[in-house]
Design a protein around this nucleic acid. Sequence first.
DNA 1: AATCCGGGGAC
DNA 2: GTCCCAGGATT
Length: 379
Amino acid sequence: MLTTAEIKTLRKLLLAWFRQFQRDLPWRRTKDPYAVWISEIMLQQTRVAAVIPYYERFLSRFPNGRALAEAPQEEVLRLWSGLGYYSRARNLQKAAQQILAQHGGQFPQAKDDVMALAGIGPYTGAAILSIAFGAKHAALDGNVARVLARLGAVRGDLRESLRWQLLQRSAVELLDPKSPGDWNQAMMELGAMVCTPRTPQCLLCPVAKFCRARQSGEPEAFPEKRKKRDAVQIVLAAAVFSTPRGQTLLMPPPGNKKVNKPAADDIDTLVSRLWHFPTISVRNDVSAELRDYLLDSLPAGNGKLHLEPLPRIRHAVTYRNITVLPFRIPAAKIPRIPGARSIPLRDFSALPVSNLTRKIARAALLQSTEPAAKLALKP
DNA sequence: AATCCGGGGAC
DNA sequence: GTCCCAGGATT
């Protein structure tokens, strides 16, 4: 436990450090609640470097809540394509529509109203309210939890309910009531830049003298590592149709089916419910199973299918290790399948796709015998 | 309380 | 290869 005087000193030291050394990030140049909101959603479980280009593009395409609320969902997903956790984008637009309908397009300032928005939980609500409105809410995320666990030498799994509540109380106690937004960002910045998971830079830490983990001699021993579930191996086969003009075929986002518990190799889930190559989960004879699947889905009389194996692709999502075996299928024209689209293999920017689909397209391009394709790839 | 959802940079 | 990231929704 820290004394009141120690807490005041700690606040002063950390805030001074933050104000001197903070990174210049795009969302720190504004207090517009809409912009702060977009940044906080994008930053969920996603690193700063990955977010920056998406943030810039998204705000330039959707400058305000109304533009976001009134856009086609596919356009929102298209701007999110590649960032992952696509329910964030779907919830983001839903919340924009809530704000338009219930708050006249103005981002709400009451905590209950903010927490009622789709995709906004305890962390994000506190972050937006403190940063955009200066409200006194402590934001507890993974970075802050680690910093607090080290400051107090907290043992055990931080995500455990009671322990998270303990950390939440610590966060509230330390919160600087004079500048809650800067304080929350300072705690996160410290966690991201100094008090890092593996090798904390205690020599650079402005509050090291208050840190019990440092006093213990092994700060990196906090917090306790959490155990992960065993990985499942999955093998998929994907069809990459290819016309002389460089067009290929993508299947539309799968509709929402009422499956309680999808299998680990459920294709709809693995393609993130976005546009995707014709894909199946395979067991034994890969090309034969893919051929059978295609002959079933294609209109009759499409002739013979020539399947050329492409280099295999590795992709990891949560607990799944996916191997994709792509096949290039030369075709004079793209077969007509209801809902499917013909698009250039070289440019998927018109449709929302996951990075798994991008990887398959890239493998097909690299393998292409067309010289121009290789030249166009490398900048 | 557990599980799931993407993806990749840092180590 | 492993870890985990400015978490939230769902069950």
